[in-house]
Amino acid sequence: MEHLINNRVKNIEISGIRKFFNMVADVKDMVSLTIGQPDFPTPEHVKEAGKKAIDDNITTYTHNAGLIQLREAAADFYRKKYNVDYSSEHEAIITVGASEAIDITFRTILEEGCEVIIPGPVYPGYEPIIKLCGAIPVYADIRNTQFRMTAELIDSLITDKTRCIVLPYPSNPTGISLNEEELKEIAQLLKDREIFVLADEIYSELVYEQQHVSIAQFMKEKTIVINGLSKSHSMTGWRIGMLFAPEYLAKHILKVHQYNVTCATSISQMAALEALTAGIDDALPMKQEYASRRDYVFNRLQSMGLDVIKPDGAFYFFVKIPASNISSFDFCMELVNEAKLAVVPGSAFSELGEGYFRLSYAYSTDTLKEGLDRLESYLRK
């Protein structure tokens, strides 16, 4: 009876990142630099808050939008960190990770045939949901702009069908962020246009030389901000995301969220409350360590003669493959088979990622050294 399955579901694929990770996971003696998951444990005080929630029987449904004290903490976090003021009661929703926040946003604002502009190469979690909504992803080629999404690029792709622009920064897979001037230019471009911006800021606490700036500072009424605790507090498995949007929009997104999941888990919400209050700066020591790893990896990659742009944030390098006559998938399979090293083919990040591979440095220095030694040895051959 497979012919009865929704064709849109049949026509999307499992994430290329996960497909490749699963393919090599059981290979003996493999060094994997594939997954974008912090290698730090969740902070102890946050774990204790989760345990206490269980002991205190905080194990029931919460408000659909999340515990009010958590929404207050989330709004306070954005006010203190990024100078954007949201109403905790009407403009903040606690979601099941940032992934659910992306899903419910698109399902709220997209309709059949409308277009969404996305930078490419890009995290593969946007296109499938856009297509499931019957909308059309339109890729902005950022390979010739140092992986930066510019107002000029966006302007060249806007049509009367454009409904939304996705701004993920710092970016997965490139690690590139956007600065205040660039964001102001995009906001100015969209000032008189009825186009939403989905700002995926999940890596906002992992920006190195500059301070993260949210585009919501300049166009809050058109912006849906998505964030969460997976990267900032090493809480990937707790599945807590944060969505901020103006009230006229948030009230509709909340309906989709309610019918989708009812609410985020109460136990994780209590841990998140601890993370956003007592642990508001928990990301700082992690960020310092990531910055050190970034510099080490950058120097190693440069010494190998590889074409690579130094990232502003997150924990990825997007590296150009030196051989032009091999696909990114075949290159990565050669690394697996000949060097016992796993990285992610650039093709996992749209067709515009072909010719590159992504390397995650969310691993210990020892693991990075061994992986880079294997890469260097392979390239010498």
Rank of each mutant, 00 (worst) to 15 (best):
T145V: 05
F147E: 01
Q146F: 05
P137M: 05
K184R: 15
V197F: 08
Y169T: 10
S171G: 15
R148M: 05
P173F: 02
R193S: 15
K184M: 09
R163Y: 03
Q188H: 09
I158A: 04
A199C: 07
I165L: 07
D160Y: 02
S171P: 07
R148H: 13
E205L: 01
A199N: 11
R148D: 02
Y169V: 14
V207Y: 00
L178C: 11
L190M: 13
V207T: 09
V207E: 01
D141A: 06
T145K: 14
I165M: 02
I142D: 03
I202E: 13
S204A: 12
R148Y: 03
Y203M: 07
P168I: 06
Y203I: 03
M149Q: 10
T145Q: 13
P173T: 01
K191D: 05
K161W: 09
L206M: 14
T150Q: 05
I195F: 04
A187E: 01
E181R: 14
R193N: 09
K161C: 10
L183E: 03
D200T: 14
D192C: 11
N144T: 09
T174V: 04
L157Y: 10
T159R: 15
T150Y: 02
F147N: 10
Y139V: 14
R143Q: 03
A140T: 02
I154G: 13
L189E: 06
L178P: 11
D160V: 04
K161T: 12
